[in-house]
Design a binder for these strands. Structure first.
Lengths: 135, 135
DNA sequence: CTTGACTCTGGTCTATACTCCAGACTTTAT
DNA sequence: ATAAAGTCTGGAGTATAGACCAGAGTCAAG
């Protein structure tokens, strides 16, 4: 079991942020010492790294919270709800993947535009590069 | 040329946000009327849609600003700088793509876990689903 | 030529996601 | 045993990304 400082170091996230996430229901320490110190387990570490991943790709903490709360309980009703929410999120993720690939391609074009490239001057900004791929 | 309200309608972005972007150097109206009304051209619309895309995939306005400022001027020095920045961004984008694909896969797993699926109970949360793919 | 819709600047306000104390207690190292 | 380092709660402060409002000017239609 890790104390908050150790978890902070391991995940690269500040103590304050960890307590902040706790306050907002994203994570709860597996236990507390008698004196009230938070104790985190291995699964807490995984949870944190999921939170980080989800945040990095543009989900808000609120959305991350919803994702973490998802639970298919094999009962029809819950299934229906979860499926709806999840399928919606998949759409969102797909859209973001597309946008991100476009941007990546533009960055690449930009990277070779100068430095020996023989692309015309219109490729010399990100907008120019982006435009090329839209056509 | 479009007035701010028209641009707002066309891009789905509020007038206030447009003025906010202007204040922070992300966009400048192509012209102004004598009375001071902002006038936007076609290229401004493209610029806005780039801003939106970049925002959607998780870049901050500050980062978007940096992306927009990028300009390869065919001179060695600028090239060096741009290449460095851009290659760095490509790394970031790649990382996000990976994370996003993982999340997408997990969401899919989750979506079929119930509803006729015969996956074990560990797949019944996003963390469980995510774990499966990490192994 | 006025009324309603639009725009201007400048300012305050809000939500999100933290960060940074303060004052008190706990643990660890010497 | 005591000092340093770590943790606790609660609260204030900060950066980002706008939303909202006031008071004044502008434009378009009837």
């Amino acid at each position: 079991m890790l104390k908050i400082g150790e978890l902070a170091q391991r995940t690269g996230i500040s103590r304050d942020a960890l307590r902040f996430y706790e306050k907002h229901g994203l994570i709860t320490p597996t236990a507390r010492t008698d004196s009230g110190y938070r104790l985190y387990s291995k699964s807490d570490v995984l949870r944190i790294s999921f939170i980080l991943s989800a945040k990095e790709v543009g989900f808000t903490l609120n959305e991350v919270h919803q994702l973490l709360e998802l639970e298919v309980t094999k009962d029809k009703k819950s299934c229906q709800d979860v499926k709806e929410f999840v399928d919606n999120k998949i759409q969102v993720v797909n859209q973001r993947l597309i946008e991100m690939k476009k941007i990546k391609q533009s960055l690449k074009t930009l990277s070779v535009a100068c430095c020996g490239g023989d692309e015309p001057a219109t490729h010399c900004t990100i907008l120019g590069a982006l435009n090329t791929h839209n056509r």
